[in-house]
Amino acid sequence: MNRLHPRIRLLWVARAVVFALVVGGVATAATLFAPVSIPSFVPVVVGGVFLVGGVAMALLRYRAWGYEVRDDSLYLQRGVLTKVNTVVPFVRVQHVDSTRGPLERLVGLASTVVYTAGSRGADVSIPGLTPEGAEDLQDRLKRLAIASEGDDAV
């Protein structure tokens, strides 16, 4: 089982912090403009709860994430509250992307997205790879998908 790159934690934690700040800001605005008087510590508490919760979730998510390139399929395992294990047979792979979002570029990471024709798990994304790792994984999944030679991808 492969882990994600540790630096993805940075990204996720940053995201959680930003979200907590936004929530805190909204709560502050609500306190200021609310018709009834709300004690001033409330927005701080709300923001703090979101901050702690978000950061904890980000760290736990990192610990829960794992993937494995097996002989005939890609196996992913993730999820903090809801654990999700996904098996993507290579035969079913339609195409493979490796993407780098602006934030991901900032921390020097990339993700690989695997597309199938399915209705629910139609695109499976593996975040937190180094750019080379993502490209490598893409290349490898591509080759494995070719080698597995499905007769009918749907």
């Binding site: 654990k83 098996v87 209705s119 629910r120």
Partner: peptide, 13 residues
């Protein structure tokens, strides 16, 4: 079986 695309196992809290 040959129509299966992906297999997803999930477990909520």
């Amino acid at each position: 079986y040959y129509r299966v695309q992906t297999v997803i196992e999930r477990r909520t809290i």
